[in-house]
């Protein structure tokens, strides 16, 4: 087999075909864009892309982790906001303290949500919806419905310090976190156990995976990541303001699905999510270059999510693979039906 075919097979088997494809597509579109508008691509564009990755990347990873486990954490966008608020409020003198407080609070809250989901066998969707409201309310209470400024300018500047030509300390931190989590997922049994829980929970339980513990840990961790992202963002913007926006959620879900995470769970890699985030950030940068209005950006992202949702819809997939896998399927049906 030629090395190209070999590489392709390895990439496909890792589920990276979609995200890498998405990045290539976006890059091509971007290049065409610059040809059309006559504006050359500069490192400033690259910087913007990575800033976007830095802002929402961890939010996407947080949601992606819960999706891989077959759940869905709707409280992530609210924890993003609360994390920022907590960090800004408590990190005035020492930014690290602020981050620690935000992450610690998130771990506790996420674990609580996870506990309810695991013990009572409830879907995470309504529970985290309630969590979303609770966290939003807490944010309003803590900020007294006002914007809170962050006065530690050294910290703000530190975060903004450029690294290389296209990164900043902020985006670098986020990339490092991605890398760390990727290493843990790949080199420990946590990654495959998580995918097992999402892929076939009954089989995972029967195999001896401590499903409840994993569910609690996953929801705790997703909250923690969201809080971290929020804290960094709070510092970077030198303040926070409470709002109810759904946009981090739309970005996170689109990036995750682009990154190869399946909605039903069981599939997805950290690298894939990173690629999905990058692809979506390139798209957003392109829209900025085009001077697209906010509403147009919203529509484009919404449309992309619809397309992605339809492509990954089980109804569509079943028809395609039905003919290909009818043998296995019939066998499985026999096994399931003839009890």
């Amino acid at each position: 087999m030629s090395s190209f075919a070999n590489a392709r097979e390895r990439i496909a088997s890792q589920g990276l075909l979609l995200p890498l494809g998405a990045i290539v597509l976006m890059l091509v579109a971007f290049v065409c864009l610059s040809e059309i508008t006559g504006r050359p691509i500069t490192t400033a564009n690259g910087y913007d892309v990575f800033q976007q990755v830095g802002t929402y990347g961890l939010v996407a990873l947080a949601i992606a982790l819960t999706m891989v486990a077959g759940e869905f954490d709707l409280s992530v966008p609210a924890m993003f906001g609360l994390g920022g608020t907590l960090a800004v409020l408590t990190g005035e003198s020492d930014p690290y303290v602020g981050v620690a407080v935000a992450v610690a609070a998130a771990l506790v809250f996420g674990a609580l949500q996870g506990g309810i989901v695991a013990r009572l066998r409830i879907s995470s969707v309504p529970v985290t919806l309630g969590g979303y409201l609770i966290l939003s309310g807490l944010t309003y209470i803590l900020t007294n419905s006002k914007s809170i400024p962050y006065d530690n300018f050294t910290a703000v500047q530190d975060l903004d310090t450029p690294v290389g030509m296209v990164l900043s300390v902020h985006s670098l931190i986020v990339l490092l976190v991605f890398a760390a989590i990727g290493v843990v997922a790949h080199f420990t049994k946590i990654g495959s156990s998580l995918r097992a829980i999402g892929g076939d929970r009954r089989a995972a339980r029967a195999s001896g995976v401590p499903v409840s513990k994993y569910l609690v840990a996953t929801l705790a961790f997703s909250s923690a990541l969201a809080a971290l992202a929020g804290a960094l963002q709070g510092y970077a913007l030198a303040g926070t303001s409470p709002n109810f926006a759904l946009s981090p959620l739309i970005f996170a879900v689109t990036a995750s699905v682009l990154g190869g995470v399946r909605l039903e769970g069981g599939r997805g890699t950290v690298l894939g999510v990173a690629a999905g985030v990058a692809a979506l950030s390139i798209l957003e940068e392109g829209l900025v270059v085009l001077n697209a209005s906010d509403s147009l950006s919203q529509m484009v992202t919404g449309a992309l999510l619809v397309v992605v949702a339809l492509i990954s819809a089980p109804g569509l997939r079943l028809r395609r693979t039905a003919r290909a896998r009818a043998g296995t399927a019939a066998a499985e049906a026999a096994l399931g039906a003839d009890k």
Binding site: L246, S297, Q298
Partner: peptide, 18 residues
């Protein structure tokens, strides 16, 4: 198509508002 209702409706919200 059995698409996930949460995802579809989130996307639709963005589309409709935009």
């Amino acid at each position: 198509w059995r698409a996930n209702p949460i995802i579809v409706t989130i996307a639709a919200a963005g589309l409709i508002e935009g």
